[in-house]
Simulated scan of single mutants.
Amino acid sequence: MSDRVAGAAVMEQVVRLHDAAPPRSPLARALGVTPLDDAAQPWFAGAVGERRVGELLAALPAGWRVFHALPVGAGEADVDHLIVGPGGVFVVNTKHHRGQRVWVGERALLVAGQKTTHLRNSDLEASRVRGVLARAGVVAPVSAVVALVGVRELTVRQQPRRVAVVRAEGLVRWLTRRPAVLDAGTVDAVVRLVDDPATWRPLESDEDTAERFARIEREVRAAHLVRLGWCLAAALGVLAVSLPFLPH
């Protein structure tokens, strides 16, 4: 399971939705209309967020192991990131809320004033991992973490009792500051269990998913640049029309 890349499960969903959607018309391409439909856009943002957290977690020092996109439970549920180290086992749920204000209290996490299910879902994922360890007879503390990507403002009135909420940029520092609670032998036992595909729900992965997602990502960026070009052209047009009327 250590070969699973960050965001693998969400990227698969983006590719699936993108392939099912009708292709853009030549006019839509010329105007810079995004290649993502409404259903795919939140999944795309989620994939970008998980990949960003994956990049950040690569900076963890020796003695820590990181796993991504672990298929846990039934349906299509997965653990975004599972981290094992001296500080324990951490189940990290990534949430990408670019440019939003986030407020955190003991029992609630609000994004732009709207209550979310982030705390409940993160606690549930940690409970599932605790069950995986318990069934294998491995004793190790499991903590739930929400890692926020791209938020403009984070106000923590009170940290929830069962879930830690941190900015993604500070996640590695937060993890390495946890007090040591696991010895090397226990860390190795957890890593062996997590790395075993038999521990998790069987996967039907497409080896081309990462490359197909990269192509979609390039299309999204190209469309964004086209829109910027149109906006710049419009601004220059307005300026050109206005120049004769401006005072000299």
Rank of each mutant, 00 (worst) to 15 (best):
S205Y: 10
H118K: 05
A6C: 06
P35T: 04
A223N: 01
P202S: 08
W230E: 00
A28P: 07
A198W: 09
T34Y: 04
P35D: 04
G63Y: 09
D196F: 08
V139F: 01
R130S: 10
P160F: 00
G237K: 06
N93P: 00
V187F: 02
Q114V: 15
A112D: 15
L246E: 08
D188V: 11
D195G: 12
A45L: 13
F67P: 05
T186G: 03
Q100Y: 12
L36V: 08
E169D: 15
V190I: 09
V145D: 02
D38A: 15
A210S: 13
T117D: 15
R107D: 13
A45P: 01
A40W: 01
V104Y: 05
G113N: 06
D19H: 10
K95A: 10
Q41N: 06
R24G: 00
S143D: 11
L133M: 08
D38E: 15
V111T: 10
S127A: 14
E211W: 12
E211C: 07
P86I: 00
W174P: 01
T116P: 08
A136L: 05
A214E: 10
D196W: 08
R167H: 10
D3N: 14
W103E: 14
L148C: 09
R218I: 00
A8D: 10
V5W: 12
D78Q: 04
R51Y: 05
G105L: 03
Q13A: 11
V92F: 00
V102E: 11
T176W: 11
V14S: 02
F245Y: 12
V142M: 03
V102Q: 10
V241M: 11
T155F: 11
L228M: 12
F213C: 04
L110F: 13
A62D: 15
M11S: 07
T209F: 03
V151A: 13
R24N: 07
F44P: 02
H248W: 12
Q100F: 12
S205W: 13
L31G: 09
P61H: 09
L119I: 04
R24W: 06
A126F: 05
L175E: 06
T186W: 05
R120E: 13
V156H: 09
A47W: 02
G229E: 01
Q114Y: 14
G54K: 03
G237Y: 01
A20D: 12
A223S: 11
R173N: 14
L225W: 02
G105C: 04
P141W: 02
A234I: 09
L175D: 07
L124N: 06
A184I: 11
V10A: 07
R107G: 02
V14P: 01
R221F: 01
L228A: 10
V238M: 11
V149F: 04
T186D: 02
S143R: 12
E12F: 00
R173Q: 15
G54N: 07
A69P: 03
L236K: 00
D208K: 12
L239R: 08
D206G: 05
A144W: 00
R192G: 03
L70M: 09
E204I: 13
V156C: 08
P244D: 02
A214P: 04
G113P: 07
E153S: 14
